[in-house]
Nucleic acid binder design. Structure first.
Length: 596
DNA sequence: GCCGTTTTCGGCCCGACTGTTTTCAGTCG
């Protein structure tokens, strides 16, 4: 079972599903991570805690359901890396009753709400345990009260400064839940990189961290600065007018909140000779780095942010470039988007990393709106901007009539629109396909009749209503829509809005299989609020044989530039140009359209 | 709790910064 709803619950850390028959790998992994967090609060053996986290990572990365492997007498769950006898016993218990003994014991000692406290910056497991023992603090509201009453400072090793810091952290946490859209982080990083690069003596400023890896949301920004002027760039950074709060400032690192979103930015000054090692180190992910260091030790090296060193005589063997660090470890350079410890190190070692799709390989954009529905520009303006981006073709895909609020097109207007596109074709300087973003109604029927759909070059089907249907209903709805013979693309398949709305609940695997059978491409909607489909689902869908289109869903010419975020998501999903239909040149793309 | 092409025991990734201390624990990335 691979229900989207379950996957999201796992990521957001809500309560576990009660019915363990619907548990997928993410749910299981989350139980283990939660147990590891509680073990930290209980100050248990750090290595044992890590083994729980490792097991969770392995289970999340596993393409098959671990609970199904458990039930198969021919399979051994201990064949998974990081799963031994003890963890297998826990998994058996989870399969039977949705939890396991050690987790239950910890939950008797500490309330599950205590886990949320770990998200408050400046508070770690030790302090949370202390607060629980002295004051029974279990929620963020409790924590806020203790700080306001100045009771936190009464505890050993804690003081007034921590009280203030925690109160500020609580405010920030509540304001943003701690994460920002990739596009927001990208804009701040671009601005700051330019600003810091103007410091005399600065050679390079590079974003690292989850922004460089292209995660759809970013918690904070890491900027690396090198050159003789790097140290003064730190001073210049904290003096920036948009810095609202300086969190830390040393000779090598400055940390501050920046701009209206109060996004945390860490700037690090680095010597040229260790720039590559630092870039590698601060790009992460944490899991990737841990796995990489384990490989280092095996090969007789140690790796830190200053370089790669031989263990026996401490000789530095790499550090100036990332490529050299990876090469010394017998690895091809790994694109940052893949650095999640999801098999990329093994692939690099075997020289079988994918040739990831690139922005320059995109030949057209198939999802954009005009004044005809809820867009803000004309067909001609959108076409002109797309041509300026170097595309060979676009599809204009306005809304259908169900979205009355968006002035969606009815059958009559669709036929007129298709006719108009044919008339304009030669005057636009770029090939324009007539298309529609047709609503998939509550019961899975298309919002327009067959005659109207048949008049268009391309039909994208999207769900915009009744988004809280249960999994069975939504699955049936999407499966019915996929039987429409004119449907070519399933638009923003999960319907999620980042930091705002959960994805629909549906059986992802069944829908993908139907799309593969029906030759319907899955959309990678590049709008920064959507990024839908996203990395893990893309990889899963690719393994099931799916093909994809990357679209911007632009409502304004400026939105066309969002294509890069969609490409980033595709790269994170291990997709190559051959997986993406709109990398095809016009002629071949047209052949594909008619062949489908 | 996991792991082993030296090992079934004894390892397990590493360093910077802060606050509250007077040498370091806790937190973070």
């Amino acid at each position: 079972m691979n229900s989207i709803g379950a996957r999201v619950r796992a990521r957001r850390g809500g309560p576990p599903p009660r019915d363990n028959r619907t548990m997928d790998n993410r749910d299981v992994a989350r139980l283990l991570v939660q147990t590891a967090d509680l073990m930290e609060i209980a100050a248990e053996d750090p290595f044992r805690i890590r083994s729980y986290r490792n097991a969770a990572t392995a289970i999340e990365a596993c393409p098959e359901s671990v609970l199904e492997i458990l039930q198969d007498p021919a399979r051994k769950v201990t064949d998974l890396p990081g799963i031994g006898k003890g963890m297998a016993a826990n998994l058996h218990e989870i399969a039977v009753r949705g939890s396991f003994e050690r987790r239950d014991q910890l939950l008797e000692r500490y309330p599950p709400t205590a886990l949320e406290l770990l998200k408050i910056q400046g508070l770690g497991p030790k302090t949370i345990a202390l607060l629980w023992e002295h004051y029974r603090v279990s929620t963020i509201d409790d924590l806020e009260r203790i700080c306001r009453e100045h009771k936190l400072r009464l505890l050993p090793r804690l003081g007034a400064k921590l009280e203030e810091k925690v109160l500020r952290s609580i405010a920030t946490y509540r304001q943003s839940a701690g994460r920002f859209l990739l596009s927001v982080a990208d804009e701040v990083a671009t601005e700051l990189c330019h600003y810091l690069a103007e410091t005399p003596g600065v050679d390079k400023v590079t974003p690292a961290g989850s922004l460089r890896r292209g995660r759809e949301t970013v918690g904070d920004l890491d900027l690396l600065v090198t050159g003789a002027g790097a140290a003064s760039a730190l001073d210049r950074f904290i003096a920036h007018p948009s810095v609202t709060e300086v969190l830390a400032k040393g000779p090598n690192k400055a940390s501050a909140r920046f701009g209206p979103h109060a996004i945390q930015v860490d700037v690090r000054a680095l010597p040229k000779e260790s720039y590559g090692a630092a870039l590698q180190y601060f790009t992460g992910s944490k899991d990737h780095n841990i796995a990489l260091r384990a490989r280092c030790l095996k090969l007789g090296f140690t790796l830190n942010e200053y370089g790669l060193f031989r263990l026996d005589d401490n000789t530095k063997v790499a550090g100036e470039t990332e490529e050299r660090v990876y090469a010394q470890l017998g690895l091809a350079w790994i694109p940052p988007e893949l650095r999640e410890n999801h098999g990329e190190i093994e692939a690099a070692a075997a020289n079988r990393l994918p040739h990831l799709v690139e922005l320059a390989g995109i030949r057209g954009d198939l999802h954009m709106h005009t004044l005809e529905s809820d867009g803000r520009a004309t067909l001609e303006e959108m076409a002109a901007h797309a041509r300026a981006l170097g595309y060979q073709y676009i599809a204009i895909s306005d809304h259908s009539k169900a979205l009355a609020m968006a002035n969606g097109l009815d059958e009559r207007r669709v036929l007129a629109f298709a006719e108009r596109v044919r008339e304009l074709q030669d005057s636009l300087g770029i090939h324009v396909f007539s298309s529609i973003e047709c609503d998939i109604r509550k019961d899975g029927a298309m919002d327009l009749d067959d005659e109207a759909l048949a008049s268009l070059d391309l039909v994208i089907g999207s769900v915009h209503s009744y988004m809280n249907q249960d999994s069975a209903e939504m699955t049936a709805r999407l499966l019915r829509a996929l039987e429409c013979p004119y449907l070519r693309v399933l638009g923003h398949p999960t319907g999620r809005l980042l930091l705002a709305r959960e994805p629909f609940s549906f059986d992802f695997d069944r829908v993908v299989d139907a799309a593969v059978r029906r030759n319907v491409a899955l959309e990678i909607n590049a709008s920064p609020e959507r990024l839908d489909l996203h990395d893990t689902l893309l990889h899963a869908a690719k393994l099931r044989g799916a093909r994809f289109v990357i679209d911007t869903d632009s409502h304004h010419p400026q939105h066309l530039a969002n294509m890069r975020y969609g490409v980033t998501m595709a790269r994170r999903g291990w997709l190559e140009a051959s997986d993406i239909v709109n990398t095809l040149p016009l002629k071949e793309f047209q052949e594909q359209l008619t062949a489908l």
